[in-house]
Computed example of a mutant assay.
Amino acid sequence: MYKQSGFTLIELMIVVVIVGILVTIAYPSYTSFVQKSRRGDAIASLADFRVEQEKWRANNISYTTSAADLGLSGSSKDGYYDMTIVSAGASTYQVTAAPTGVQSSDSCNTFSIDENGPDYSGGYADADCWER
């Protein structure tokens, strides 16, 4: 007697269905996790802007509106956010980090800081988003 070994088509299809269900459940969780981890790029870049603005203000009469004056670029370190100095004056400034590219679908949207720290007003990212 010869015994055949291997998988039947039904067994193979059951495995494919199970893998499909697992992927359907896991992929949204994975993308959410990736977006949360990329928020650290905005937070770290905003911290750099804050430090550099304070250094600039210590040596000048006001904050600057130019990222080049601070030695920084218009994008975050990893490139997931566009950095903009919205306003700057003698005693105040505001810097925003707007998501771009693959990060633009993040629910937290735009992060903002001012001279006092994170700015949660005006539709900017709330405290939960800052916690990553």
Rank of each mutant, 00 (worst) to 15 (best):
M1K: 15
Y2G: 13
Q4G: 07
Q4C: 03
F7S: 09
T8Q: 06
T8E: 05
L9V: 03
I10F: 03
E11C: 03
M13D: 02
V15L: 04
V16D: 01
V16E: 02
V17F: 07
V17I: 13
V19R: 05
G20S: 06
G20A: 03
I21D: 05
I21F: 07
L22C: 04
L22V: 07
L22P: 03
V23G: 08
I25W: 04
I25N: 06
A26H: 03
Y27H: 07
Y27D: 03
Y30V: 05
T31L: 14
T31W: 05
T31H: 06
T31Y: 08
F33I: 02
V34D: 05
G40I: 06
G40R: 12
G40Q: 10
D41V: 12
D41W: 10
A44G: 11
A44T: 13
L46A: 10
A47S: 13
A47V: 06
A47Q: 13
V51I: 11
E52L: 12
E52Q: 15
E52G: 04
E52I: 05
Q53H: 08
Q53W: 08
Q53V: 05
E54A: 12
E54T: 08
K55N: 09
K55H: 04
W56T: 00
R57T: 04
N60G: 01
N60A: 01
S62F: 02
S62E: 08
Y63L: 06
T64V: 06
T65K: 14
S66G: 02
A68K: 10
D69W: 01
D69K: 04
L70I: 00
G71I: 01
G71L: 03
L72P: 00
S73R: 00
G74K: 00
G74M: 00
S75R: 05
S75A: 05
S75C: 00
S75L: 02
G79I: 06
Y80W: 11
D82K: 15
D82N: 15
M83H: 07
M83S: 09
S87E: 13
G89V: 07
A90R: 14
A90V: 15
T92S: 14
T92M: 08
V95F: 11
V95C: 12
T96A: 11
T96P: 14
A97C: 09
A97N: 08
A97G: 07
A98F: 02
P99Q: 01
P99I: 00
T100Q: 12
G101Y: 00
G101Q: 01
G101L: 00
G101F: 00
S104Y: 01
S105C: 09
S105L: 09
D106F: 12
D106C: 10
S107H: 09
C108I: 11
C108E: 11
C108R: 14
C108W: 13
N109W: 09
T110L: 10
F111R: 10
S112Y: 08
D114G: 14
D114C: 12
D114R: 06
E115P: 12
E115V: 09
N116D: 12
N116F: 10
G117P: 04
G117T: 02
P118D: 01
D119I: 00
D119R: 03
D119Q: 01
D119E: 01
D119P: 00
Y120G: 04
Y120V: 02
Y120P: 04
S121H: 03
S121A: 11
G123F: 05
G123H: 09
Y124T: 12
A125F: 04
A125C: 07
D126A: 15
D126P: 15
C129A: 06
W130F: 11
E131Y: 02
